[in-house]
Amino acid sequence: MTVTLRVRFVRWFHQLASPPYVYRLAGQLAPWFAVTAGLLLLTGTYGGLVLAPADYLQGDGFRIIYVHVPSAYLSMLAYIIMATSAVVGFIWRIKMAHGLAVSAAPLGASFTLLALVTGGIWGKPMWGTYWQWADARLMSELLLLFLFAGYMVLRASFDDREKADRVSAILAAVGVINIPIIHYSVEWWSTLHQGPTIAKLDQPSITMDMLSPLLVMILGFTIFFAWLLCKRLQGEILNREGHARWVEKLLEEITR
């Protein structure tokens, strides 16, 4: 029993490095992620804009939290996924892992930008300014945007894909240092950005009716990211495997 389970697991693990298997898996998962993300985002938006009570201090202005926090959280998650898979690809020379890292980069960059923009819009009425150069949270999140951009620009500068994979993985790995800096920046240097609200180990300082739409939105953003990661990974696999026989067969199937 345990032996067959282990054999199955090992086989599955090896399949994860096989392009046609990953391509098909991503294609099968994508529609489920799409539907789930759509439902969660609609529910969360309704909860955040309608059901949640106005904040006693910030009034209805606090409702920006339901798009700002999920995008900021997702920007970091995307970076961790990108860096982890790039490093896995670097160490074990797995092309699919590099493909996953490449797919995560533009998604992560867009959500980093979204976190910065929604943060600025939120900051204007609450802090009186869209931006402050001296704030550690703002600076480290801006650095995250540059890391995503740097990863993509660096890759584009190589003609040889394998070389691009290896060099860009090093950049991605070094940039991981920035993730704990973003997370703890509001505690280490308290300037403009407020302290943590939900990511506290003891007690989140937010009531349930405000918190639950936020958790729904965070989950919705995450699954939305998983959906588009699947689509981008499919494209990336085709870019890398364009002349393989299984791709030719696939093309014959869908263009018949």
Partner: peptide
């Protein structure tokens, strides 16, 4: 939005 329409 309680006066925050433009931002929200």
């Amino acid at each position: 939005m309680g006066g925050y329409a433009a931002y929200v």
